[in-house]
Structures are given as structure tokens and as C-alpha cells.
Design a protein around this nucleic acid. Sequence first.
RNA 1: GCAUUCGUAGCUCAAUUGGAUAGAGCACCUGACUACGGAUCAGGAGGUUUGGGGUUCGAAUCCCUACGAGUGCACCA
Length: 594
Amino acid sequence: MDIQEKVETDILRAIAECYPGQSAVVQLSPTKKEFEGQYTFVTFPLTKVLRQAPAQIGQTIGAWLLENSAVVSAFNVVQGFLNISIADAAWVAVLNDIAGNPDFGTLPKKGETVMVEFASPNTNKPLHLGHLRNIFLGDSVSRILKVNGYDVVKTCIVNDRGVHICKSMLAYQRFGDGETPGSSGLKGDHLIGKYYVLFDKAYKAQVEEMVAAGTPKEEAEKQAPLMQEVQQMLRQWEQGDSETVSLWRKLNNWVYAGFDATYKSIGTSFDKTYYESNTYLLGKEVVEEGLQKGVFYKKEDNSVWIDLTAEGLDHKLVLRSDGTSVYITQDLGTTDLKDHDFHTNRQIWVVGNEQDYHFNVLFAILRRLGREYSHGLYHLSYGMVDLPTGKMKSREGTVVDADDLIEETTNAASAAADEAAKGKLDQFSEMEKSALFQMLGLGALKYYLLKVDPQKRMQFNPEESVDLHGNTGPYIQYVHARIRSILRKAAEMDIVLSDTVEAGQLDEVEQQLLFLLSQYPQRLAEAGADYAPSYIAQYAYELAKTFNQFYDKLSILKEANPLTLQTRLTMARVVGETIQRSMGLLGIEVPEKM
RNA sequence: GCAUUCGUAGCUCAAUUGGAUAGAGCACCUGACUACGGAUCAGGAGGUUUGGGGUUCGAAUCCCUACGAGUGCACCA
């Protein structure tokens, strides 16, 4: 039995008995630490219904609870706030519940399928810092939804066709000289990125030359020979020209291998990958359907539109006058396809907030078309990542490459961790050490990017991101290592953990720790409902910090009273497991030793 | 210009969705190691929540307004 629910139902009973005929919505909040108690009930909203002063209502309900509730041990009323203390025996019962439940924090199966789309890169350049925020978010949200009881399908839509990849292809054809990832020692995605940059350089030079010769800039950008050739190449690709297609295939495969290496290094994967080269023609039959249903209308020039002014949006083109698709046409078709493939109850897109409007339009259209799944569509929109020096701009070369960043982060974390370990890792092999440092570096990076509310634009400070102290991944990882060390030591001392512990008197910090543990399922549910890894990050930090306070204030293995020792050791074990679970939801591993 | 998101300590972020005296970390200052792991803990200082109005028992949160920042407004993707 969840202790908070118990108190809430007891308050409802109190209201029913003390104020016959009245009822209210009861919601508890944690008590602020300067007051005594663990749960606070705010009585102000009841004053009108019950026609009594807030403090008096608090007093009445508090007294009733003390008399009749099995879990309430004390109460105090400050202004209209009723602060409730929970009996130590009830806390110990909570601990026993959690300790005996191997599935603690895994919510029951819901029998619903959620598809989470993230990463979704273009194949003309390597991944960068912005992609990392995207991927960590998508990966973490997938994990959170899974333990919330959903069947989760992680998916990635690879934008593998179009002008951008033709640019790399053309530059490669022109300047490549048969270079391969093997011959250059470059990862495939980096190699192709190199040619994309080369194209851009050569193209710009051409445009400048033409402008200097008197061509207007806009005109020059269209007419430049390189751009013409790219357009030609795109047409050849669309016609299935075998030479073009085989070049395209070769280069894209290099890129995929590069991406896969990056995904592997950060510990993510996809259940299903869609390629735009297969899906870019989808959606035209949806347009037909919309016309038939009268949802879309056709203009004289044969272009097809939808009027979304009723939704506060605009008129939107869904098919060009020449009958070809636009971006949103394709998305209409792909969304249908995803639903067809997996019977989704929900579809989530992890995509930057510059596409907010696009998704509003997409969802509105699908609702108009009467898609059953349309009410489960959600755009998990996130803000850009800025550098201390300002925005990342690819033109100015200030983009932070993902692979470089991961390597630098790991190196920086290694140096700092090696220093901090003060010889504790002496018996580690070089392999063990490097695995540990990788775990810490990646933990620092992921935690840094995930602890912030996704919606907000955030700043990435390279030095702070590898910090081991304070509100960081490694701080939390450290607490886990510490707990494991205590448990190893207990085993060496032949202390056997009993299945259940007995109630004794608890210290304030122990009550606080148990309170936090009991909150885990609720936080998990909230994180799932709001698609918010930041809630979990915040929680893990609070739990780790509170454990450190507990550890500093009270003895565990040195405790003379064997019953108290059992209780504390069990608490340590459960906190360690809960930290491991929480961090696992962020895609962060925790070490046995560090 | 229109739409939209945001503005909280010197810096980076919280604030359980309208609740108490707005909390953490970093940086700064002071204290705690014959240690169950000091990669830690305790304490100090730091705020007119961008400004102004409103709604109510109560506002960082909701409404209006001004200012500042981002993003979007293609028969591009």
C-alpha cells in the first residue's frame, strides 16, 4: 500500500466524518523541511465549502487522523497548512515492501504501443551536439515509457535522399579519387561530411565569381554549374540511373556504418529504421482521400490545400501544382505507415522546436482526416544547445562534433577521475580502468544534457559537463559505488541481510530517505506522463544527496544494535538499487567501484 | 509585421503544475578526516523571480502590457 495514498484516503474519511455531506479533492505535497512532518495538506481550498477558518479545518482533520489513521503519528498546523508526520513503523513497512519487491518501480503493463522517433539524421554529415541531446532524450523517454508499462518501438527515420546527399556525392565524384573510410582512416560519416564541406566551398567560390562578373546573387546561386549538376544528379537518382544509385548506395553505407559506431558508443539502438528513399513517395493517396472527404481543396492550378484557420493555423499546401509531394505530404504517408506497421496507440517525435509549427499542422490534418491514432500524437519539442560562445553555426565551423565530444569528455573525465581516485583503482586492469572512465565520462555527458527541461534552450559548457562534483552524473555514480562497497564489506563481516526488518526508532534523515524511496513510482509515472527524463535526473540526485547525508550522520556497519544495523543496511541496499534503476532510465550505467 | 517559446542568485539549472520565508550545483568564504569510500558532509554569503498593472485567501506559475532573447512564417526538407 502506497503510504501517500493511504493518508489521502484517510483525509477523505476525516472530511466525510467531521463534515457530513461534504467532499473534496485531496492532494498532498511534501512538507517543507523547515517544518515537522512529511506530508502537507493545504486546507485553504476547503474554507468556502466547509465554511470554517483554514487553521480550524487543519486542526479538526489533524486530530481525527491522529485518532483514527494507522499511519499518522503526529500533526501540526501552521496557518492553513496541516503537516502530517508518519509513524516510524509505517516507514519500516514501506521499506520491507520495497526491499521484498524485485519489480519495484516497474508499473503494470498497459497493453499499449508507443512509437518513439528520434535521432533521424541526414546522411551528408556526422552527428553533432544537438543530435546528442535529441538521442539521449529519445532513448531515455523510451526507457521511461517501457517501465511505465508501454510496449515501446524505437524508430529512426534516415533522411538519405535529396539535394544534400547529392552534394556530397558530386564532390566525392569530383575530388574523391577513390578515397574510402579504410584508406583515409576516417569514419564513414566524417568522410562524407568532408566532401559536403568541399562541395560547399567550391560552390561558394563559383557563386562569388559569378557575382563578381555581374550576375545577381540569387540568380548566381541557382545558375552556378555545380548546383546545376547537383540538380541533374538528383534527377538521375530519381530515374534510377544505375551508376548514380550505386554511388549513392556506397556512400550512404559508409555513413550508416559511421552512425552505428556512434550509436553503439553511446549505448542506444533502434527497433526499426525507415529510409526516406523508401517513403518519400508516400502520402499521395492520403491527399486523394482528403480530397474525397472534402477535407482538402484544389486550386485552379491543381495544387491541393487545407484550410486550418479554424485551428488558429493557416492554409497549408499538401500537394504541388505539378502533382509532386512536399515535406508534409511525405509525413502524412509515413505516419500512416508507422501506425500500419505497429498499431500505435501513441507516436512521439523527438524533434527540435524549430518544427513546432510543422507538427501542429501535421497533427491537425490527421485529426481532420479522422485518423483514430491522431489523439496519441505528440511532438517532444526541445530547445537548441548553445555554447558559452553563442550559437552553434555550421557555416562558422562552431558545430561540436558528437564523436569528438564523446572522446574529449571521456578523456577529461579520465584525468579527473584518476586524480580523484587516489590509488583506489590500483588493482584495476587497464581495460577495467578505461571501461570505468568511459562510464563516468558518458554518465557526466548524458546527465548534463538530460537534467534540463527539454523545452528549454540550454547552454553547454564543456568544463561543467565533465565535472564530478555537485549535481552531476558522477556524483550519483559515486554514491552507488559507495553503497556497493558497504554491502561487500558487510558480506565480508558475515552479516546476512534478513528478509524483513523490524521497526525501531528512525532518525529524521532516515525518514526522509524512506519518503524519497516511496516516491519513486510516482515520479516515474509523472516522468512518463510528461515525457520528462529531467524529473528522473532530479530524483536520482535528491536520493543520492540524501543518502550521503544519512551516511555522514549515522553508522551502518558500526551500529551496535543488530536490528538497527539490519534496517540501515537494507536501506542502503534499496537506495543503491533505486539509484541504479533511475540512472538506467537515463541510459547511464553505475559502477561497483570507482 | 504576424505566430510561437522563453526571461528565476555572478554563472548553470530547480521549484511536485496556483501554496508556507523561491531551492540546488558551480564559483567565493568558514568548519569536519586515527575513514562503514573525504570523488564526502556541515555552515556562511548571494533574490524587488526583466519592468509595470490585474485576477484571489495566496502568483515565478494564470490574464493584460512594455522591454529583451530564440524559433517559425516556401509549390525547401
